[in-house]
Design a protein around this nucleic acid. Structure first.
Lengths: 214, 214
DNA sequence: GTGTACCGATACGCATGAGTACCGGTACAC
DNA sequence: GTGTACCGGTACTCATGCGTATCGGTACAC
């Protein structure tokens, strides 16, 4: 209970009272997220993280009060928008690119979400961190992409399928392992987008011509 | 192993050496699945199941060797096909009915799948039981439904979207909670089917007329 | 050089849960 | 009635993990 050591909950490097560099902190975060992907949230132990990063359990507990707070901090710190930068000028091509991009990180993020899926129902902070780190940024980027398509007149603004595009994409990412036993790769996702998302949005250039090449 | 006493791994009442009636067995299975939905697989304890069913831990361990075997047996015993019996003569209406039906059990089954999602990566028997109990029967029923539509000529047999329909439906079931914070209800699922699945299959009667009533 | 404060290591208390062992009660077979 | 075998209860062993406490080393401030 040191008084002024009340550092923010997620990062500690801001208060330079700690000798843990931001790079070192990243190692902790990467390690715990990786172990969660591997073994599930419940099976991850602070001891295991400490061992794999060759730090001491004390060090972790000095910076973060509890395991869920530690994990939540790790999630917040790895917030990234994978869909950022996709803007080809065509909504259909944007969506294909998004599918391709999703295939690249889908394994890691899908496993993480799967592993955290039930832990978040027990810890509110964890749930919020997961949403803000992995879900909302991607959904927002996707909606932006769709918004540009609407502005260009490629899709009517009130098209009923618009609001379901994120659910379609993230949904197929999430069920593919349980349906087929393997994670969705870029090829599968692109085919999915072309077979379902684009037609649902009315984006197939010539509906009579079926352009499958597999 | 033992020749005729080789009771199936999932039910024990077949060998009437046990005094546990099938109804009693169902109570055990219902209890453990319910607790898994509530607390997650790891947090479920044999002690908790025994307490909630007012039986003894010994009783459970006499019938099932380990916790994963017990859970796998419970899964196999609750195998049911929810989509069975849907056959309206129209694929579009079949799919709407399926969506409506899915809304009814989606909460229970989605929570169960979510809760088991990571445990199955560690236990092979559990994974197989989950697939055979909750996944494959529904997918098969769905594919049958689609097959009938193809036979009736409503959709060409090689329509590229056909193979993705199960992924779309189960996908949206699975991501809805994490996207919106609530489980998918029947209304949402029907709207989803009408906005995405039917158009992707080319099943919108008059493409120009947008039939939304919300 | 001296001191402060953080790091790593280790050991510990405490709780919890898997799976086992034992024991008395009882229902059913015969 | 007698015996068998299963049920429920409880106590036990063993392992594991959270979170805390303690201690020596050391880097950096001044």
């Amino acid at each position: 209970m040191t008084s002024q050591a009340a550092d923010g909950p997620d990062t500690v490097a801001a208060t330079r009272r700690s000798k843990i560099t931001p790079e070192r902190e990243r190692e902790f975060f990467d390690a715990v997220l990786e172990q969660i992907r591997e073994c599930g949230y419940d099976s991850v132990t602070m001891e295991g993280v400490a061992a794999s990063t060759r730090c001491s359990k004390s060090t972790l507990y000095r910076q973060w009060k509890t395991k869920p707070q530690f994990v939540a901090a790790a999630l917040r710190a790895s917030r990234r928008v994978r869909f950022a930068g996709i803007d080809t000028g065509s909504l259909a091509e944007d969506l294909r690119q998004a599918a391709r991009a999703a295939g690249d990180w889908s394994v890691k993020d899908t496993r993480l979400m799967q592993a955290l899926g039930h832990a978040v129902t027990a810890d509110q902070e964890l749930a919020q961190a997961l949403r803000e780190a992995l879900i909302l940024p991607e959904v927002a980027a996707l909606r932006e992409m769709l918004g540009r398509g609407v502005e260009r007149g490629e899709v009517p603004a009130d098209h009923p399928a618009l609001e379901y595009v994120p659910a379609m994409l993230f949904g197929v990412l999430r069920v593919r392992p349980v349906l087929c036993g393997q994670y969705a790769d870029s090829g599968y996702l692109v085919r999915f987008v072309e077979a379902t998302v684009l037609p649902a949005l009315g984006l197939t250039e010539d509906p009579g011509h079926r352009s499958r090449d597999d």
